[in-house]
Amino acid sequence: MDVIQDYLNKCRSITDTVESQKPEIQKAARWFADSILAGRMVHVFGSGHSRIMVEEMWPRYGSFPGFNPIVELSLTFHNLVVGANGQRQAMFLENVPGLADRILRNFDLSEKDAALVISSSGCNVVPIEMAELFQKSGVKVVALITSAHSSQSTSKRTDGKKLGDFADLILDTGAPVGDAMVSIPDLDTPVAPGSTIGGAMLVNCIKAEVARLLTEAGQPPKVLSAGVVVGAEKAVELFESAYDEHAHRLARLYEKVGQGQRPKL
Rank of each mutant, 00 (worst) to 15 (best):
V117D: 02
V71A: 02
Y7K: 01
R12G: 09
V42M: 08
F107D: 01
E111V: 14
V18C: 00
T158R: 10
V81G: 05
E72C: 14
T196K: 01
L8T: 10
T158I: 13
I4W: 00
K222H: 10
Q87L: 14
F67V: 07
P185E: 03
E55P: 08
L73V: 14
N68E: 06
I145H: 02
I145K: 07
I197V: 15
E55N: 03
E237K: 15
I184D: 00
A232R: 12
E24Q: 14
L214R: 04
G48R: 13
L80Y: 11
S147Q: 13
R51G: 08
S74Q: 10
S137I: 11
I4G: 00
Q135Y: 09
P221S: 11
A148Q: 09
N85E: 12
N124K: 05
R262A: 11
Q5F: 02
E240H: 12
K10F: 00
D165G: 09
L116H: 04
V82W: 11
T154V: 15
F107W: 07
Q135T: 06
P97R: 07
A38D: 12
A226P: 14
E216D: 15
E132T: 11
T17P: 01
S121H: 04
A180N: 00
F67G: 02
I25P: 06
K234Q: 15
T154M: 12
L75N: 04
I36P: 02
Q152R: 14
S74P: 07
R249K: 13
R30W: 09
E132D: 09
V257A: 04
R105P: 08
E56C: 01
G194T: 03
S153P: 04
G86D: 03
G66R: 00
P193V: 01
S119R: 07
K222P: 08
H49E: 02
G48P: 09
N95A: 12
S121Q: 03
T76K: 13
V210A: 02
I14W: 08
H149A: 09
Q259E: 14
R51K: 14
D188S: 11
D179T: 02
L144W: 03
V18L: 01
R88L: 09
E240N: 11
A100P: 03
S155H: 09
K27H: 07
I25H: 05
S47Y: 07
A217C: 05
N106A: 04
Q135I: 10
S13E: 15
S20H: 01
P220K: 05
D165L: 03
I25Q: 13
H246R: 05
S20W: 03
Q259R: 14
T146Q: 00
E237F: 13
G46P: 05
A251I: 14
V81Q: 13
E132V: 07
Y254G: 09
D168F: 10
A167Y: 06
K140T: 06
F77Y: 13
P263D: 01
G194A: 11
H43W: 08
L116F: 09
C123R: 13
L109I: 13
S155N: 10
V210L: 04
L93K: 06
R88C: 06
E56S: 02
P190N: 02
I170R: 05
E94H: 12
F134P: 08
A100E: 04
S241F: 08
